[in-house]
């Protein structure tokens, strides 16, 4: 387990909003070219946790964070969050393509919005590669310059994945990426996640136990802001160390 290089290293992370403690001291390492699932019942702090990893939690006023998050030996709290976010992509619960932009513009939005100029051939290349990786190219290659609104929910979510991949991130954060999608789109995206780990490390929050067992190499189980158990998916799902994990897996509380 330790032979694989790490991406994120979280050290005693504590998060609170006002007097409510959301995360109560979590330390864990994430590994390169793997899919790691974070699962747990609603309100266990998993979404807050993943949002700390690209510092998007800072949008919440009065949120307080202590502890450290290190990405490739760089403490993310000691640099500008914009630099971290260009290196760490994120996909959200609900598909959120930019409605004012075409499919093409959505994919290269990370460059355009950041004011990074690309040659025409370069951006076409990035669009094609990213959409291919996201498994959307063949469905949209003839309508790249149309607005993305006509796409189905699942296609929109894959467009968002393509938009994140276009920035060539080293880590991709997925915050319940299929919770707003139908079963067919969900399985499409699950297949995609398994393929993507070749090129990018994936950290995925899910409340779907089946999803965690299907797609991830490592699984972490969160409960009430604490890390109960973390290990290979196979071990955690077959012989969990902690009785609470076993209880969650069998009775599916939460």
């Amino acid at each position: 387990m330790m032979s694989v290089p790490t991406t994120f290293r979280v050290i005693d992370l504590r998060v609170s909003i006002g007097v409510d403690a959301i995360i109560r001291g979590i330390s864990m390492d994430f590994f390169a070219n793997t899919v790691t699932s974070i699962m747990g019942p609603s309100g266990c702090g998993k979404t807050t946790f993943i949002r700390c990893m690209n510092r998007l939690h800072e949008l919440v006023p009065s949120i307080q964070v202590s502890g450290d998050i290190v990405l490739f030996n760089q403490n993310i709290f000691s640099v500008n969050p914009m630099l971290i976010r260009r290196q760490v992509g994120m996909v959200f619960q609900r598909p959120n393509p930019f409605p004012t932009m075409s499919i093409f513009e959505n994919v290269v939005a990370g460059y355009r919005l950041n004011g990074i100029r690309l040659a025409k051939s370069e951006s076409s290349q990035i669009v094609e590669t990213s959409l291919l990786k996201a498994g959307l190219w063949h469905e949209v290659k003839d309508s790249l310059h149309r607005k993305g609104a006509f796409l189905s929910g699942g296609q929109q979510q894959r467009l968002c994945i393509a938009r994140a991949l276009a920035m060539d991130p080293s880590v991709l954060l997925l915050d319940e990426p299929t919770s707003a999608l139908d079963p067919k789109s969900t399985s499409h995206i699950e297949d995609l996640i398994a393929e993507l780990k070749e090129s990018v490390s994936i950290i995925m929050v899910t409340h779907n136990i089946g999803q965690a067992s299907r797609v991830s190499d490592y699984t972490a189980f969160f409960l009430a802001g604490e890390l109960v158990e973390y290990g290979t998916t196979q071990k955690l799902f077959t012989v969990p160390d902690d009785p609470r994990t076993e209880e969650y897996l069998s009775r599916k509380f939460g």
Binding site: L59, F92, P97
Partner: peptide, 11 residues
Amino acid sequence: TMREASLALGV
């Protein structure tokens, strides 16, 4: 979610 999408790209 629009703001988040943009900020998450490092904008």
